[in-house]
Design a protein around this nucleic acid. Structure first.
Lengths: 249, 249
DNA sequence: TTTATAAAGATAGTATTACTATTATTTGTT
DNA sequence: AACAAATAATAGTAATACTATCTTTATAAA
């Protein structure tokens, strides 16, 4: 399966589906409408805002990211961007919503072929650490950049004073949905397991933290053999997940 | 042991030390000098800046926290605060440095009395989740506020573009030092354990995340019986830590 | 007691940020 | 050809994150 992303639309070519025939399936993730004022997928400028927004947040960090700088990058104006997003914070959550939907989609697609729940969880860990085969097949250039944002900016989406208010707008539903999906796979591996959702969120957060630590604060990690950060995180998460799940309390 | 905090000085009364005699030990944590321009412990305004700074960050969140608002709270001016701290970001790291030093100090003090390394680790988990006996004996009113800041703001100290530059200033040394101390205790429990530092940092980060999730995004946690957030986090961390450590790979 | 000096207070000012508002221009549609 | 809708261009505001300067106050040495 080869997946091509066109901005926030998935272009899904299943080579195995019909022999010698490329079948394109266009997928759109329905993103919570409260996150934008005008649907960025509805126009070229809108797509540019999101696409180059990812680039810029990645390049300068969320704190230094401004709509003014983004406007310059896309040869447009601040006013135009404000017609799509009420604030840079909403744009960040929009991007993360897309990413969380992507995680759940790719997981569900890939897991269909697997019967063994242990193998399912292993595959999920590959997906969240971006050690996934299909990942490299994704033609879209900016999934790596997106992963970079997720690692260093995603917790800023919820670690704010207004968390309860914005949570009411359902903007964290895709994250919860993904974690609960992972939690169900965990329960398939061990139906007696007491912390399926907590472990799911811990694995996702730890994937980000340990990637960041391995790269920037190596004393907070144990990447001794200096393998790639992704590979190190995958090994560690596999160990953590299965030692927890297989320990009956 | 009763501990009283006076701003950034510990006032340590060991009741067991000499019967019926209160012995006061004043402790100061040496905070990295690059974090301040003028030592806030050297004056009353300085102490107020830190003390009321904790209050205000806790009340409005780090994003909305400004030196102007803080100046009003302490009946002083922005200019005065800027003479102590170059930015609100440096003040945050200063506060976190103090907290990380506190964690290591309280851990080392309490662990002296224990021989069994498993008991040591259990006690450390009590300390980082603030389920610790001495915690409630700490007369100082704002340790709870400090814990609140640590839960929702601490990752913002390192999740920034400039992490490598500020890391060179050694401002994360107390965090690394604490995690490595915990890592050594983990190795005492199981000398073959492959991820002592990673597990230590994971436990600390997970303590914050799960506390936050239990409170604000409960679907990302498993606090089913609705016990206190602290108690839930302690149970989960104990499970996570010992299933990892006792699983020989 | 005067005098130096260091901290703090009072005040002003700047560049940037995070917006909002207004008008003009372009673009596609009937 | 007329129309609406989106965008561009421009201006403006309040707040933020500072820097600078000058005055007052407290403290301590001469």
């Amino acid at each position: 399966m080869t997946i091509t992303r066109q901005c926030f639309t998935y272009n899904c070519i299943r080579e195995d589906f019909i022999q010698n025939t490329y079948m394109q399936i266009l997928l759109k993730f329905k993103i919570n409408e409260s996150l934008f004022l005008r649907d960025p997928e509805s126009s070229e400028v809108g797509k540019l805002i999101v696409e180059k927004g990812i680039d810029l947040i990645r390049d300068v960090g969320f704190e230094r990211f401004t709509f003014k700088k983004l406007a310059e990058k896309i040869n447009s104006t601040e006013a135009t961007i404000y017609r799509y997003f009420a604030s840079k914070y909403r744009l960040l959550i929009y991007i993360l919503n897309w990413y969380w939907c992507y995680l759940e989609f790719v997981s569900k697609m890939s897991l269909q072929e697997l019967g063994d729940s242990t193998q399912k969880l292993k595959l999920i860990l590959e997906i969240i650490t971006h050690n996934f085969d299909s990942d490299s097949q994704i033609v879209d250039y900016d999934l790596e950049k997106l992963h970079g944002i997720v690692i260093s900016e995603s917790s800023k989406a919820y670690l704010v004073k207004e968390v309860d208010e914005i949570n009411q707008e359902l903007v964290f539903s895709p994250l919860k949905s993904f974690c609960q999906f992972v939690g169900q796979v965990i329960l398939q591996v061990n139906p007696k397991f007491a912390y399926p959702n907590a472990l799911a969120s811990t694995l996702l957060e730890t994937a980000h933290d340990q990637h960041f630590f391995s790269e920037h604060l190596p004393k907070l990690a144990d990447n001794k053999s200096k393998i790639t950060h992704k590979k190190y995180v995958l090994n560690y998460l596999n160990f953590l997940a299965f030692s927890a799940i297989n320990s009956y309390q």
